Amino acid sequence: TGTRRLSDLRVIDLRAELRKRNVDSSGNKSVLMERLKKAIEDEGGNPDEIEITSE
């Protein structure tokens, strides 16, 4: 578990975070980053400090 910047995430991490939020996880990295950023902002979170749970 740790905090990472949105830009540091790999595509696989972006998809996992989107799936956790029940958000569409298809598309390229830039699309996924925008989608995740919006989802985090909608939750009231900070997209520059994403809580990542290692699996």
Rank of each mutant, 00 (worst) to 15 (best):
T1N: 00
T1A: 08
T1W: 06
T1P: 02
T1K: 07
T1R: 08
G2W: 02
G2Q: 06
G2Y: 14
G2L: 11
T3F: 13
T3L: 09
T3Y: 15
R4I: 15
R4H: 08
R4V: 15
R4T: 13
R4F: 15
R5S: 13
R5A: 08
R5I: 06
R5D: 05
L6V: 11
L6G: 03
L6S: 03
L6R: 03
S7Y: 06
S7F: 06
S7H: 03
D8I: 00
D8L: 04
D8K: 04
D8Q: 11
D8Y: 01
D8P: 01
D8V: 03
L9M: 15
L9S: 04
R10K: 10
R10T: 15
R10H: 04
R10S: 13
R10L: 07
R10Q: 13
V11W: 05
V11F: 08
V11Q: 05
I12L: 13
I12P: 14
D13H: 04
D13N: 05
D13I: 01
L14C: 01
L14H: 01
L14A: 02
R15Q: 12
R15M: 06
R15H: 03
A16H: 04
E17D: 00
E17C: 06
E17Q: 09
E17K: 00
E17P: 00
E17V: 03
L18C: 14
L18Y: 00
L18F: 00
L18Q: 00
R19T: 15
R19P: 01
R19S: 14
K20L: 02
K20R: 15
R21I: 02
R21E: 00
R21P: 00
R21D: 01
R21F: 03
N22H: 06
N22C: 08
N22P: 00
N22S: 10
V23D: 01
V23E: 10
D24E: 06
D24C: 06
D24F: 01
D24H: 05
D24P: 08
S25G: 09
S25L: 10
S25D: 15
S25N: 07
S26V: 14
S26N: 12
S26A: 07
S26L: 11
S26I: 12
G27K: 00
G27V: 00
N28P: 08
N28W: 01
N28C: 13
N28D: 15
N28H: 13
N28Y: 04
N28E: 11
K29P: 09
K29T: 11
K29H: 05
S30Y: 07
S30V: 15
V31L: 12
V31T: 11
V31W: 04
V31Y: 06
L32T: 01
L32Y: 00
L32M: 08
M33H: 06
M33A: 10
M33Q: 10
M33L: 14
E34I: 15
E34Y: 06
E34D: 13
E34K: 12
R35Q: 04
R35M: 05
R35T: 08
R35K: 14
R35L: 06
R35W: 00
L36N: 01
L36E: 03
L36M: 06
L36C: 05
K37A: 15
K37C: 08
K37Q: 10
K37P: 01
K38H: 03
K38E: 08
A39S: 06
A39R: 10
A39F: 07
A39C: 15
A39T: 13
I40R: 08
I40T: 03
I40C: 13
I40L: 13
E41H: 03
E41F: 09
E41Q: 15
E41L: 13
D42P: 04
D42L: 08
E43R: 06
E43W: 01
G44K: 07
G44M: 04
G44A: 03
G44C: 04
G45N: 03
G45P: 05
G45W: 04
N46K: 09
N46P: 06
N46G: 03
N46C: 11
N46E: 06
P47Q: 04
P47L: 13
P47K: 04
P47M: 06
D48N: 14
D48P: 08
D48F: 03
D48K: 02
E49P: 07
E49V: 12
E49G: 11
I50H: 03
I50R: 08
I50M: 11
I50C: 08
I50T: 11
I50G: 08
I50K: 09
E51P: 15
E51A: 12
E51G: 14
E51W: 07
I52P: 05
I52V: 12
I52G: 11
I52E: 14
I52L: 10
T53C: 08
T53Q: 12
T53S: 15
S54N: 08
S54W: 05
E55Y: 00
